[in-house]
Design a protein around this nucleic acid. Structure first.
Lengths: 210, 210
DNA sequence: TAAAAACTTTTATGCAATAAAAAATTTGTC
DNA sequence: GACAAATTTTTTATTGCATAAAAGTTTTTA
């Protein structure tokens, strides 16, 4: 059997990520040392570095795994085809925030955001952005459907609109996790305000009575 | 003279930030040690920590200083009152990106983004977000002016619209610095696409020919 | 089964971050 | 102007992340 080695490697990877997740949730990110993760996973500290580069790399691997699960069920948890664009986008943001809070605490999410920006170009960072792209295309497909139903102008570009909405949602998500005090419903209101304001720009200007 | 101490402290702060800026530009962020900054500033390494907490804290202090200058001249470099909202926002993004690249290189900007998210709640981080708020209000004031001129619907909320536009711009700015390959004009196109798509949402849907 | 290849661990080093004790300097008072 | 008190910096020490090189171990392959 030519791939015993690959299998052992995969086992070690799984053990490292599983141990890390437990320790992060248990003791927090800062108080979890790489050495502790390594001991729990039955490898040496240097091996953790060899596999994931940094402590944040381990965290990123763990988040990517969890986000893949979100992606799989996101579309089905979103409101039906009759929903307005504002409600769709807010619901989208809602699901993402709920999922994020089920996975890790805010202060650990901050480490995630920091890691993906600092380690830009890394394999793991690319995987993270690819998932973002896939999340955005959930919105794009919904927009295409609305356009087919004649509920959105045929002129607009669904890809551009979907990505713009995702960017906005993502910006608000980052604000959500950047402040411990920020409540989910509060952020959803902000996002709603964003959307209502942006969508109102091209509405006809009332005639000047002068 | 009761505040010799305060003055010396301010002197040391200035020397630290100035030395750090030179070293960061010269040798890059990672290869600049706190000890080297301290030596250049004529203080001990621990003093740098006492003043700014972390190496990223020194960087943040330096960026805040530079962003204050941007804020002072931003409004006057933006296009005149006749400009459309899309052009205004893209010009806004343009000025910010140009200024950022004049100040530091992309990989150092990534450290800035990471620092403000990780050190959320810090004094320096708050100062950074306050500057963001002030930058956003440059847009808000422009929108208010456009509304007074009757070039935007009186119904829309200038604060909400300004903040939404800023969020979108900021998201694209972060993408700009997150990828070495991303060109400024490319990002400006993306932002333009975002805005055109968002502003088109409420346009009348063409009648169904069936 | 023995040599080669692949991989992990050991060992060592640099630096950030933090804490506590020691040293130096300014401040306020006589 | 000198001295005690207060404030601040420096010294010293420790922990943990990150990285590199050498040494050791296990799997692979011939």
């Amino acid at each position: 059997m030519s791939n015993l080695r690959a299998q052992q490697k995969q086992d070690r990877r799984n053990r490292i990520v599983t141990s890390a997740k437990e320790l992060f949730r248990e003791k927090g990110y800062d108080k979890t040392t790489i050495e502790a993760i390594a001991v729990a996973a039955g490898v040496s500290g240097v091996t953790v570095h060899n596999y994931y580069g940094t402590k944040a790399g381990v965290l990123l691997a763990l988040v990517i795994e969890s986000d893949k699960q979100l992606l799989e069920r996101l579309d089905s948890t979103l409101p039906g085809p009759e929903a307005e664009l504002v409600e769709l986008t807010v619901a989208f943001a809602h699901e993402i925030m709920v999922h994020a809070m089920q996975t890790l605490e805010k202060d650990i999410w901050r480490q995630v955001i920091a890691a993906v920006t600092i380690e830009a170009g890394t394999q793991l960072s690319k995987a993270y952005f690819k998932l973002d792209e896939q999340l955005a295309s959930v919105l794009v497909r919904r927009i295409e459907a609305m356009q087919r139903d004649g509920r959105l102008s045929a002129d607009l570009n669904p890809l551009h609109l979907g990505r713009a909405l995702f960017q906005l949602q993502n910006a608000r998500f980052i604000q959500f996790i950047s402040t411990d005090a920020a409540r989910r419903d509060e952020i959803e209101t902000w996002l709603r305000n964003d959307l209502v304001a942006l969508f109102s720009v091209m509405l006809p200007v009332p005639a000047d009575p002068s």
